[in-house]
Design a protein around this nucleic acid. Structure first.
Lengths: 243, 243
DNA sequence: TTACAGAGGGTACTGAGTGCCATAGTCTCT
DNA sequence: AGAGACTATGGCACTCAGTACCCTCTGTAA
């Protein structure tokens, strides 16, 4: 039934476009009641990505069983799981890609899906790197890199119409990431110098009327050297105005 | 009017929550017609992020004027523009952060905003790296890394309640990215293009010696109203000093 | 047979977002 | 001053996604 609905929906989306297809249209073609649609898909967008939940679960399971010795390799392999899901149905994936490119609502929805993959990868890396120090930072940056690399290779394949093997492009992209992050780089983390807090107002803005029309007005500011940048900007924004 | 609506909306979101606030509630509090709301904000979510459009335009402008010698440094500095927008209104940013964490719809919306920043950065890198070979790949991965690093530092600051200087965490995070992807060394602040614009210099900084030790020194700046924020900041950074 | 459970269907409602038109203020040209 | 145009705003009606509530049907166990 879920399958029937997903297929009916996808057909209609290709025929009339996503926005010009109502849920009533979908359930009419599928021959079911409108209420049933929302039983199987929380939203209209979900019908376009019917298999991501399963794929996400698969990735989670894979990472839980992964070897601890090479976390970056593990998340790279986890990303390949997603790739294979796409590669398993080239024509569907390509059509969906074209559809998603056209429809802003679907693009946004896809972002939230990708984000969940990314967070799953980041969570795994975090658990290996540790939460403290730069562990969380490295985890998130590497996860983002892996996802970006994967998506680059995947899009390359999708734009080609689903011809050939997508894994070669993705492998190459992931190799580039591994080259940058894979080896344990000597962290030259220099603890940033603490900026002293000025108790007195660091910035004193004056608005001075200029030519006569309000637009040529000039703002004069006085700041102490060493004032934190954000505090200066805060004052200036208030003075210069948002326009 | 836009401002009035945004404030009324944000108040109500904090009071009753996002979903439990209808557009009718907002326009009632703002004292305007319902139709006007959608004139200023395409969707209810947009009212929560009223300044991202301007910030994105600012970033685009900044990158268009950026030096070609150090693309990674340029996109890092571009990311700092976003940071400063958050830092300019700490209490608002923190409240919005907490709100966004709670509401799935807002999280998704924020993702689409972040994505646009990322694509802007990637576009700039792509134009410098070249589209061919690994140029596009490197551009997208580095853009994703920069965004992830920026967001990590930003979230750290937001979770702290907006205390202190967010730039130190973000600088540190961006340094980690630069270490992995950028060329060696090159402090970010020192690459700031030194001045410029003989025609209409928007900012004229003066350093005036103060007490005797260099720390009490005072800087006087003059800016025309309507000057792009990033240009002002650029000048001030050169004058106030990097730290 | 009744009791029950679970899948699907139907109806009415809320609320976001849009299209269309009316009205008021402002600017310009003569 | 007055006609015409342009812009900002309000009002109204409509579509459609998503939800709450209740109904029917079917199969199973006692």
């Amino acid at each position: 039934m879920r399958e029937v609905l997903a297929q009916a929906a996808f057909q209609l989306f290709l025929e009339r476009g996503f926005e010009r297809t109502t849920v009533d249209d979908i359930v009419a073609r599928a021959g079911v009641g409108r209420r049933s649609f929302f039983r199987y898909f929380p939203s209209k967008e979900d019908a376009v990505f019917p298999d991501h939940e399963r794929c996400l679960a698969e990735m989670t399971e894979f990472l839980a069983a992964a070897d601890d010795s090479d976390p970056v390799g593990a998340v790279s392999d986890a990303a390949r799981i997603v790739l294979r899901m796409y590669a398993a149905n080239p024509e569907f994936s390509v059509q969906r890609y074209r559809l998603t490119r056209e429809v802003p609502g679907l693009r946004t929805y896809e972002l939230s899906v990708v984000r969940r993959y990314e967070q799953t990868l980041a969570g795994h890396l975090r658990s290996r790197f540790g939460e403290d120090g730069d562990g969380a930072l490295r985890a998130e940056v590497i996860a983002a890199s892996v996802v970006a690399a994967h998506n680059n290779g995947l899009r390359l394949w999708l734009r080609s119409g689903g011809e050939g093997d997508p894994e070669v492009a993705v492998d190459h992209a992931l190799a580039l990431v591994r080259e940058a992050w894979g080896r344990p780089a000597a962290s030259t983390a220099s603890t940033a110098p603490a900026v002293p807090e000025a108790s007195t107002a660091p910035v004193v803005p004056f608005a001075v009327s200029g030519g006569g029309d309000g637009d040529g007005e000039v703002v004069v500011m006085v700041a102490r050297k060493g004032t934190p940048m954000w505090r200066v900007v805060q004052q200036i924004e208030a003075a210069v105005g948002e326009n």
